[in-house]
């Protein structure tokens, strides 16, 4: 860092405040999700028999959901690129797609949960199902939160009020991609590596 007296208002390397705040929030989210994932990891290693319980989960459905969420990350980042170009209509289109894909993810997840619960695999069934519902539930709540935020941005974009939301699309995007990354790890942790 420079040490001489300068006359700029912010003497350090300027980091946009909103971005710094967002990454602070994400860092706290990483340790939170990380905490439960680390706990799951050690339990899974300690209980080889969870393999058979995990085998009940539907890989095709989860794969479909993975593709949905990955695609929603693409639409989100394209919305951000459209903001950069000042293309209001495209911003609205991409945001709408992101919201729709997020909802698809949650609905598929709900279907999956219903299926498991109907088969008697409830949270208290065993340690594995506790972690399954705990982790996917926490993640689904985060997806829902992202859907709500993106929907608010979508409404603003539809009203052609791009200016005040411009950098919020970037921040919402950071959050959305983070939620995507969590799923990227939950997918192999819970569904793959089963045999």
């Amino acid at each position: 860092m420079q040490r001489e007296a300068t006359h700029a208002v912010a003497p350090a390397v300027p980091v946009p405040a909103a971005k710094l705040g967002m990454w602070w929030f994400l860092a706290s989210e990483i340790v939170t999700f990380g905490g439960i994932i680390v706990a799951y990891l050690v339990f899974r290693l300690a209980h080889p028999q969870w393999l058979e319980e995990a085998a009940h989960l539907s890989v095709p459905i989860a794969t479909f959901n993975t593709l949905v969420l990955l695609t929603s990350s693409l639409t989100m980042v394209l919305a951000f690129a459209a903001v950069d170009r000042g293309d209001e209509r495209r911003v609205a289109t991409w945001l709408a797609l992101t919201v729709a894909l997020g909802l698809v993810f949650v609905l598929v997840k709900a279907y999956e949960w219903r299926h498991e619960i109907a088969a008697g695999r409830v949270p208290g069934e065993s340690g594995f199902w506790g972690f399954y519902y705990g982790m996917t539930g926490l993640h689904a709540l985060h997806v829902l939160g992202g859907v709500v935020v993106n929907a608010c941005l979508l409404i603003a974009a539809l009203r052609r009020r791009l200016e005040p939301i411009a950098h919020r699309v970037e921040m919402a995007g950071l959050y959305w991609h983070f939620v995507d990354i969590v799923w990227i790890f939950l997918f192999p942790l819970l569904y793959l590596s089963t045999h």
Binding site: T32, G34, G35, I36, V38, V122, W129, G130, Y133, G134
Partner: peptide
């Protein structure tokens, strides 16, 4: 963070029957 996760898990233990 890990304790927030832990608090959620403890709450689930108390309310949702997990262990």
């Amino acid at each position: 963070g890990p304790l927030i996760a832990g608090a959620v898990m403890l709450l689930l233990d108390r309310l949702a029957g997990t262990s």
